[in-house]
Write a protein that binds this DNA or RNA. Structure first.
Lengths: 208, 208
DNA sequence: GCTGATCCTGACCGGGTGGTCAAATCAAGT
DNA sequence: ACTTGATTTGACCACCCGGTCAGGATCAGC
């Protein structure tokens, strides 16, 4: 049984060795879960990719669900950050463009995380509907209010704020989730092209 | 063993009874594959949902791969149609908007097919990379050429044609693939909103 | 070099997986 | 009613799945 972590001070917070092994497992699990989804992934493949036996993996994580939950938890923290980064006091068009760029950068730098998230949503969001309702939705509502304000002040074009946000998600995550298709259909594509296009697109749409 | 279909004339082309059963299986398989992906789906669940035993399912289809391949094959036929529907002789902005509307309608009417496709791409397109290279890519190249022509003639704004096409795919398919997220974050959302938004977006972007 | 805690593994378990097979059922023509 | 071929299924197989367990390495502190 894994040691309970409710002990006063077990080493340097949780021995560096242990943390390193956990990271290796999560790294391998991300590879597998992102490609095959929760049901399609197997502990054997994750353990093999992490270079250890399955029982050893289960020494660090209680179960398959546990690994998956930890992965999603870590991910969702990062997911909300860009939305929070929009500055209500900033220049509206530039603030939205900055959000688009940050989101695109995340898709470029964390494509596996994006695919993991996408797979979870496609499967009906069985394990993260709570997060979506409690964490994401309020933040979206808030941002929608902010955008409505900007529109009312005539500082950006009148657009449906909800659709605007969805469009940003779709356009940025697409480059991570559908990378395999993009690579085949337009092999020379570089992230820079996408950045320039999105800049152009949203500037045209939003500039009053 | 299933009868070989290389016989001269086996009944009315392939007895209506048989075709009906195959449809029921494919219907059930689409439900399951779209949610769980190829690896995550099981023949037991598909057979159960189709209201028959697993051996009976395997009487109609040779294997799990067979069912999946048939589903993808049927789907990919439909997938290319809208792209082919763009009329080189038409009014550029309207032609592109017509394409966007057709693609959005497909996401609305065939969300499971869209999710099946998305899951396949997320998994690295192991079973359809051939189709993407041989079927989709030439068509995209052709369309890119057409759009470049329109741009050269000054009939639409200068945009990256490849990025334009990707953006249409991303924005339309998003409504099917991420329906679970949309339903939680913005429950009242209706497809009509998306249609109006996309119309506005691409009209602004493309009108010279 | 002894000791205790941590780390790691082979062997195993019950249940699920894709797929097979022989036998039972059904539909339809005669 | 009888025959023939298409359809359906229970029983089964070898293998894989998530997870357990008893015991063997390994390492730190003494």
């Amino acid at each position: 049984m894994p040691p309970a972590d409710d002990q006063p001070a077990a080493g340097p917070v949780r021995s560096a060795r242990r943390q390193q092994t956990e990271s290796a497992i999560l790294e391998a699990a991300l590879d597998v879960f992102a490609v095959d989804g929760f049901r399609g992934a197997t502990l054997d493949r994750i353990a093999e990719r992490a270079g250890m036996s399955k029982p050893n993996l289960l020494y660090y994580f209680a179960s398959k669900d546990d690994v998956h939950a930890r992965l999603l938890g870590d991910l969702l923290d990062h997911w909300l950050a860009p939305l929070r980064g929009i500055d209500p006091a900033g220049e509206p068009v530039e603030e939205i463009l900055r959000y688009v760029r940050r989101k695109l950068a995340m898709s470029r730098d964390y494509p596996r995380e994006s695919r993991l998230f996408a797979g979870e949503i496609i499967a009906g969001a069985p394990r993260i509907s709570g997060f979506l309702a409690d964490g994401l939705r309020p933040l979206v509502d808030e941002t929608v209010g902010l955008i409505r304000g900007w529109i009312a002040q005539g500082r950006i074009s009148p657009v449906d704020p909800v659709q605007l946000i969805f469009s940003i998600w779709a356009l940025t995550q697409h480059h991570a989730d559908f990378a395999a298709q993009i690579e085949i259909v337009a092999p020379g594509d570089r992230a820079g092209d996408a950045g320039a296009f999105l800049d152009q697109l949203y500037r045209r749409l939003l500039t009053p």
